[in-house]
Write a protein that binds this DNA or RNA. Structure first.
Length: 492
RNA sequence: GGCGCUAUCGUCUAACGGUUAGGACGGAGCCCUCUCAAGGCUCAAAUACGGGUUCGAUUCCCGUUAGCGCUACCA
C-alpha cells in the first residue's frame, strides 16, 4: 500500500495546480475499466504537472470487502503508476454529515420518513418518480418532532420545481450538457442509517480535496446534474468534468464479472504475463488516441501526448472471445514490448513464470535461453510452452513420425541422426561450429540441410516447431543433445 | 416508460465541408528462411438508414433505427 505523502513543494506554488482523483469503491476486484479511469487521471495529472489522488469510496458498508480493497491495491501496484495523496471516505464521515447538515439548514434538503423500498422488483418501469408525496412539503416542526422521536429518515435534496430550471455544465469530452430539474428526482444525500450516499460523499470530498478535474466513467454523465446541484448548494466552485466512454464486451453489454468472467480483472492480465507497460498502453488506446497514428508508446510518450481532447465519445469494445480471453491488440502490444526488452530484464521477469509451470532455472540459465525464445512469446507465461524442453531432463513422449524429414523416410531420419551423433560428438558446441558441422554432414549425406536439421530438432526439442537449431543445441549442451539423439534413434 | 449519451473496415481509430475515406490489430497471400517466430511486400474489409442545409456532406441540422447509461437510502 502506498504511503500517504505530504504535498510536494510544487503543490504550494499555487491553487491553480490541477488535482485529479481516482475513487474506486472496494466492492470487487480492480476492473479494467477502473484501471483505465485511473490511467487517464494519472496521465492528465502528469501531463499538466498536477496531483493524482487515490480516494477509496467505501461508504457502502454492506458491500465493501477487505479482499476487494486488497485487489484494488494489488492491481494499482502492478500498473506501477503511483499517486500523490491517499484518502479513505470512511475516515471523512464527519465532513459528509456536516455538508449534509449545511444543505439541510439552507432548506435545500428535507427529511423523508418513507421506509426504504425493499421490493424494487414490484416497481413498474413506466413511472417517473420524483419524490414521495407528503415528505417534501412536510413542515419543519413536524419533521423535527418525528426526527426527535427517533423516526428514521433519509435526507433528500430538494430539487427545484415550479419553476423547473436547466442545470448546465460543459463536459470536456461530451461538450455542453443540459437537463431540466423537472427530470431529476429528489435524490438521497444521507441514508436512513446516517451514512452518506455516493453523490453526497463524492461531492463533499471533491470539494474539500479541491479536485479540479473529475475524470470518470460515462455512467456518471447523467449523475453529474445532481452533483452540480450539490456543489451549488455547498457554494463551492464546480470542478471541470470529463467523462470517459464505457468499456463494453463484444456483445455490447457492460463488462461484468458474472457475465464475462476473469477477463475484466486486472490481475488476470498480470498473471497471464502481460507487462504493465504494454497493458497500460493498450488501455490508453481504448477510447483515446493521439490523432497521429501512434500506437506503441512509452510511458513518457503517453504523458506527453495525452489530452482530454483526444478522448472519444462512443463505447469501446474490449475484443475478447470465449476461447481467447485477451484482446489481440493487447497481446500484440505485449509481444512487441517483450521483443524490444533487454535480455537480462526479460530473463528476470520470466523466472517466476518458469517456476509457476513447475520447472527450475536459475538466472544465468535463463539469460542463456531468453534470446532463443524472446521473439516467440506473446505473454510471459508462454515460456512454459515455448521453452519447456530446456528445463526437463527427459523429453515428454512424442510421435516418432515427427522425426521423418520433408520428402524423406525413416531411413533418411535414421541416417541423419546417426550422422549427427557422430558429427556432434566431435564438435565444439558453439553456434557457428555447430552450423558448419551439420551443414557439412548434410552435404556428405547428400540430403538438403533442412532434411538434416528437422530430425535433430525433433530429437532434441520433442517437436517440429522450435527455436533456431544451432543456438538451441548450444544452450542444451553436448551431453544432453547426444543423449536425446540416441533416444530418437531408438524410437525409429 | 422518462431523461441523457453514442453511431467510420470484424476490433481500436484518423480525416478544423472538398482525400482514390488513412493507420493499427486480426485475416488472406507472397518474399525471406534450418522449422516456428520475427521481418518485408501485397490484398480483402467501413462512413447505420431517411430527409434536409450546401456548388459539395463521414463531417452541420432534423427524423428513424440500434446500442449504451441513469432512473426511489449501489457506486
Amino acid at each position: 500500500m502506498s504511503v500517504r505523502r505530504p504535498y510536494s513543494p510544487r503543490c504550494y506554488t499555487g491553487i491553480f495546480m490541477n488535482r485529479v482523483r481516482f475513487a474506486p469503491s472496494p466492492t470487487g476486484f480492480l476492473h479494467i475499466g477502473s484501471a483505465r479511469t485511473f490511467i487517464f487521471n494519472w496521465l492528465y495529472a502528469r501531463h499538466t504537472g498536477g496531483s493524482m489522488i487515490l480516494r477509496i469510496d467505501d461508504t457502502d458498508l454492506e458491500r465493501n470487502t477487505e479482499a476487494s480493497l486488497n485487489s484494488i491495491f494489488e492491481g494499482l501496484r502492478w500498473l506501477d503508476l503511483g499517486w500523490d495523496e491517499q484518502y479513505r471516505q470512511s475516515d471523512r464521515l464527519a465532513l459528509h454529515r456536516q455538508i449534509a447538515q449545511a444543505i439541510f439548514v439552507k432548506g435545500l434538503a428535507y427529511r423523508d420518513f418513507t421506509p426504504a423500498q425493499a421490493d424494487q422488483g414490484e416497481r413498474r418501469a413506466g413511472d417517473t418518480w420524483l419524490f414521495n408525496p407528503g415528505m417534501r412539503e412536510m413542515v419543519r416542526e413536524e419533521s423535527d418532532r418525528r426526527a426527535a422521536s427517533g423516526d428514521r429518515f433519509a435526507l433528500r435534496y430538494r430539487v427545484p420545481r415550479e419553476p423547473a430550471r436547466q442545470i448546465c455544465f460543459t463536459d470536456a469530452v461530451y461538450g455542453a450538457q443540459a437537463k431540466s430539474t423537472a427530470d431529476i428526482e429528489d435524490f438521497a444525500l444521507l441514508r436512513s442509517d446516517g451514512m452518506p450516499t455516493y453523490h453526497l460523499a463524492s461531492c463533499a470530498d471533491d470539494a474539500d480535496l479541491r479536485i479540479s478535474h473529475i475524470v470518470r466513467g460515462q455512467d456518471h454523465l447523467t449523475n453529474t446534474f445532481k452533483h452540480c446541484l450539490i456543489f451549488e448548494a455547498t457554494g463551492v466552485a464546480m470542478p471541470q468534468f470529463a467523462h470517459l466512454p464505457l468499456l463494453v464486451a463484444p456483445d455490447g453489454t457492460k463488462l461484468s464479472k458474472r457475465r464475462h468472467g476473469p477477463v475484466v480483472s486486472v490481475t488476470t492480465y498480470r498473471d497471464a504475463g502481460f507487462l504493465p507497460q504494454a497493458f497500460v498502453n493498450f488501455l490508453c488506446l481504448l477510447g483515446w488516441s493521439p490523432k497521429n497514428d501512434r500506437e506503441q508508446m512509452t510511458r513518457q510518450e503517453l504523458v506527453e501526448a495525452f489530452s482530454l481532447e483526444g478522448i472519444n465519445r462512443s463505447n469501446t469494445i474490449v475484443n475478447f472471445k470465449e476461447d481467447d480471453p485477451f484482446d489481440p491488440k493487447a497481446v500484440w502490444l505485449n509481444a512487441e514490448t517483450i521483443r524490444t526488452m533487454p535480455v537480462e530484464q526479460l530473463a528476470e521477469l520470466l523466472l517466476p513464470f518458469v517456476a509457476a509451470a513447475g520447472f527450475h532455472a536459475d538466472r544465468a540459465r535463463m539469460v542463456q535461453i531468453t534470446p532463443l525464445i524472446q521473439e516467440r512469446m506473446k505473454l510471459l507465461r508462454d515460456v512454459a510452452t515455448v521453452a519447456d524442453f530446456f528445463f526437463v531432463e527427459e523429453l515428454a513422449p512424442y510421435d516418432p513420425a515427427e522425426l521423418i524429414p520433408q520428402k524423406g523416410d525413416a531411413a533418411m531420419a535414421r541416417a541423419a541422426l546417426e550422422k549427427a551423433r557422430q558429427s556432434l560428438a566431435a564438435t565444439e558446441f558453439t553456434h557457428d561450429t555447430l552450423e558448419a558441422a551439420l551443414r557439412r554432414a548434410s552435404e556428405e549425406l547428400k540430403i538438403k540441410a533442412g532434411q538434416m536439421f528437422q530430425p535433430i530438432r525433433v530429437a532434441v526439442c520433442g517437436r517440429k516447431n522450435a527455436p533456431p537449431l544451432f543456438g538451441t543445441l548450444e544452450a542444451l549442451g553436448k551431453e544432453r543433445c547426444l543423449h536425446r539423439i540416441e533416444k530418437a534413434i531408438q524410437k525409429l
